[in-house]
Write a protein that binds this DNA or RNA. Structure first.
Lengths: 339, 339
DNA sequence: GAAACTTACTTAACTGCTTAAGCCCAGAAG
DNA sequence: CTTCTGGGCTTAAGCAGTTAAGTAAGTTTC
């Protein structure tokens, strides 16, 4: 099971290894005839370049890293990541770039992993998800000079790429839609307040509510889990002036809310409209099916990989904006109850 | 942002790079005092070994590969993989082994990826999931001599490791439980018939039904998707002698079945008991919550990684059996309807 | 007090590939 | 006929480590 090296090809072709290298890499320096002969031999022997040798001389790892900094159980239910990853893959595998994955519990561990990967030259760049407003990873990435792309809003002066969707517009359209249905008491169950996009969405929600003159905006913060989603929903629905519509920051919490409504004897959508901030099969699997903000997560991953690879190739950092998520209306939203 | 190499350490310590190498690897050949000095310098400079250089001379990639051969949308909903991956990670990251991930659509692409990874020496071993009865990947793995561990039943004569759970016992206990509740007409909605574990479970189901003298076992095959799960359920429930209990091969289909029952006006669990073959948050998110076969998927991943790393270290292939999945009874199962 | 052995290093070969620099020879230009 | 040019190759250095073999001291042995 010994590997084929270019040395062996050189020997068989009766040329030097340098010539073989030029031939295999499509560079000038060998005649067409010799090139053909070398390629033929390489093919016959089933030669593939040794990644380690290439990495060593080119100082390129031919891999990019994705560090998911979340507790394992949250990752499980969120269909987001697998779709995002398969989007990344679609671009990476065609370019022969590997995807290194690490799952860690918190940002301290993520920073540690970044430092290690970079020092070992295990990756050429990073995809950063779940961006915090104050994010411990960014200064480290900047300090090390790691090419990285944010799956989220661009940061000024960061020198990083970014791929993002206009959450503000998406939240706006959700609120507009609910108002058009006659709702006046609209609340929001938001995710982790430390997260960048949570803040953006909450701000957008507040602005939209105020714009429509619906009084003081009501927002309850959670950690994205079903449990907290249920708790927040219970709290909102227990108030005398309970909302007639609730926006959720993801789909899991919206599903949990469906159960809370049922348990409290509140009909959806007759008495209460629910709107999920993420769309996935989950929304279609429950009854009533959930109205949700949907967007193409695979494309998100794909574009993220593209921007990252450009950055690694030395091109200037680029910000790519995805299509704004659109409302997919299903059974969980309806006209506001009379009175 | 130039990297620190052992050459730099050698220079500062006033010794040769060979001495530095011995010192850093804890091998004899340097005095304790010199070693301490070298380690101190290395630490101060923040030295980490270059993976590429180590890989080249040690011919070890310090990475293992996981190739998921599934359509991207199926991956999204299945909470299985993220939990499995985080289990793998728990073992791998401690041992400084990277996890390379590739998502491909079918086995032909998986085989291609295996060949490439191995030829490039990108990975030291593989984790193989979703094993088919006739699996195109196995002959290739054997031909190449890739250390690999099956996330599934061991195969005789394969020389591969295996980590698996006793599906037969799990199915047995499910059927026993339903029979104890008075059910006599029990059907099964199974997953992809090509999959190894699907066959094992179907066989176990047939045997259990016959053992209890419940007549000819009824099994409907699907592709694991919610759509087919719903279709299969509709077909089963439309028959005059419709089953009073149905076992599903995963949780997604069981959830879809819940909706079908609702749409057909069949009460769960009063008229129909549903039992999911996988457990996840999904089962708890719906009403009634689904009774399911649950097991520790993170541990599954962890043990899989352990067996693989042993194999890579040259130890003989090992088969590890996980705890048999146990029935977590929730609201979707109950006594069989009278008459 | 010479031979034998340790200790603590250094030297250099090796991993497989890339690439700048050098060399040889044929054909063109002067 | 010499000089120049350039195509087609070879040579060798370099990437960052590992490791077998060599060496120069000091120590032990009889």
């Amino acid at each position: 099971m010994k590997r084929v090296t270019i040395g062996e090809i050189a020997e068989r072709a009766g040329v030097s290894i340098g010539a073989v290298s030029y031939a295999l890499n499509g560079r000038p320096g060998v005649s067409e005839e010799t090139r053909r002969r070398i390629l033929e031999i390489a093919d016959r022997l089933g030669w593939r370049p040794s990644l380690a040798a290439r990495s060593l001389s080119a100082s390129r790892a031919h891999s990019v890293g994705l560090i998911l900094a979340r507790p394992a159980d949250t990752l499980g239910v969120e269909p987001f990541f697998m779709r995002f990853i398969s989007g990344l893959e679609r671009e990476l595998s065609g370019r022969r770039v590997g995807l290194l994955l690490q799952v860690v519990g918190d940002h301290a561990a993520a920073v540690e992993a970044i430092r290690r990967w970079w020092a070992e030259r295990r990756v050429d760049g990073l995809v950063v998800t779940d961006l915090y407003a104050q994010d411990a990873r960014l200064p480290v990435i900047e300090e090390l000079g790691v090419p990285a792309v944010l799956a989220g809003r661009p940061r000024a002066d960061s020198g990083l790429g970014a791929v993002w969707a206009d959450d503000t517009a998406a939240v706006d359209s959700s609120v507009d839609y609910l108002v058009a249905l006659g709702h006046r008491r609209i609340a929001r169950v938001s995710g982790l307040p430390a997260l960048d996009h949570t803040r953006v969405r909450v701000a957008a929600f507040r602005a939209a509510v105020l714009r429509h003159g619906l009084g003081e905006p009501r927002v309850v913060e959670t950690d994205y889990t079903a449990e907290e989603g249920a708790r927040a929903t219970r709290a909102l629905l227990s108030r005398p002036d309970r909302p007639t519509a609730i926006l959720y920051d993801n789909d899991v919490m919206a599903v949990a809310a469906l159960n809370v409504a049922q348990e409290m004897g509140i009909a959806v959508p007759a008495e209460l409209s629910l709107l999920a901030g993420d769309d996935s099969q989950l929304c279609v699997l429950v009854r009533p099916a959930l109205t949700a903000l949907s967007w193409d997560i695979q494309a998100y991953g794909l574009h993220t990989a593209q921007v990252l690879l450009e950055l690694i190739d030395g091109l200037p950092p680029r910000s790519h904006q995805e299509r704004t998520p659109v409302l997919t209306v299903r059974g969980s939203t309806g006209a506001a109850p009379a009175g």
